[in-house]
Design a protein around this nucleic acid. Structure first.
Lengths: 220, 220
DNA sequence: TTTTACCTCACTAATTTCAGTTAGAAAAAA
DNA sequence: TTTTTTCTAACTGAAATTAGTGAGGTAAAA
């Protein structure tokens, strides 16, 4: 009989950890050797208990998944990582892949998929869910053949501040209104507006609002 | 045994007439004494064959339902009219009620409802489907206690030309763009824009677009 | 350490939009 | 026939947006 696959789980949601434990217990080839509710000391713990595969969320307190991956690279650890995130943001996927993760699943996936993923990654291959594969494919194709950016990437290139301002614009606020609400200069607001228009490739604030509405970037 | 209720049907869709005939045949108290595929001579025909109740569509070739109702009023005919329309536009309902129709149903209603309506109206009462009642209620309440107009009414107060311009604005067109596309003066376009903003009670073109999107006033 | 990303702000200049008012013409309704 | 609705248009002046450029500061990443 071969050795069991040693798994470490990292997610700030206890219920999810518990659920995963239950799911993974059904497979006698898996052994969960530890779990973490945040990113602190995660790298050390994983290294210490000889983990084969780390199944990790991105959003975690103290230290997020991206930082953990980076640390893995810096310290030259070879533990394989499967990212299990709520988000399927193009920018995030790109980053995660670049940092050498072996797999990426969204939390919409079934427990079945996680088992598949672990098995696949344990065999030395990579595992990405089909929706993620599509995104990667889109990023790749739209990036190389077109000079234009992919909509996915456009959206994920919007910064937090820009999104904030995009929202206010979508609420009929003028530049001046916004500058007062955020306590910044009108010039700054207009710079953001300008940058947004360039990014989203639209001609006016109306274009911004249409784009925002179409891609559910605005609450309301 | 009492007299049968004499009914005349008017609708430009033959299938609908046929369907109604089949439905009304199931009730031995009803007698369809005639039907029309357009509004021409409708008033005369109804008067001639002693119709008790006219079930009429609004959209008809030659002469529409509104004109027919008006004619009834002018000539002092007392035939009761049930309007059966595809639309539940507030303006239309208001108009129809003002012109003295005894009932209003949308074509989404069941055959059952039409039978109910005919029976009710024959008894001298009025019949409006619940959705229509709601609309009337909204118009009434929002009109009297608030000075502001009801959204229903606001929407139906948008003219065809305004809607056209609203659409173009929602496509990122500038005033100049629109003036060239419609071959009218920029001033005119801006007047329309201004009137729209006043009507829809918004502060800017962005507001117009949001309103339009929210109420499905724009195709795309 | 150097680079990159992001937020910040300013200044100019052109263009567009917004607000209020007035008014003519045509068509439809009262 | 008179009134109302709708579309058209012009004018003024204020306010806002758009476009381009340059640049300082901070925090994080390479």
């Amino acid at each position: 009989m071969e050795n069991k696959i040693k798994i470490h789980l990292a997610d700030d949601h206890q219920v999810l950890i518990d659920g995963m434990l239950a799911v993974l217990k059904t497979n006698s080839n898996f052994e969960v050797v530890g779990f973490s509710l945040n990113g602190e000391n995660l790298v050390e713990r994983v290294a210490k208990n000889g983990t084969d595969i780390l199944v990790m969320d991105i959003n975690m307190p103290e230290k997020d998944g991206i930082q953990v991956l980076r640390e893995f690279n810096e310290k030259g650890f070879t533990c394989k990582v499967i990212v299990l995130s709520s988000y399927d943001d193009a920018k995030l996927i790109k980053e995660v892949v670049k940092l050498g993760a072996s797999g990426y699943l969204t939390k919409q996936c079934a427990g079945e998929n996680i088992i598949d993923a672990i098995r696949t990654v344990a065999d030395g291959e990579q595992y990405f869910s089909s929706t993620i594969k599509d995104k990667i494919f889109n990023i790749f194709t739209n990036n190389s053949q077109n000079q234009a950016m992919n909509t996915e990437e456009i959206i994920s290139s919007i910064t937090a501040r820009e999104l904030e301002i995009l929202n206010l614009i979508s609420q009929e606020k003028s530049g001046k209104d916004i500058s007062e609400m955020l306590d910044i200069s009108v010039n700054t607001v207009e710079t953001h507006r300008k940058n947004l228009m360039k990014k989203l490739n639209v001609k006016s604030s109306v274009g911004l609002v249409i784009f925002a509405a179409k891609h559910n970037l605005i609450e309301n």
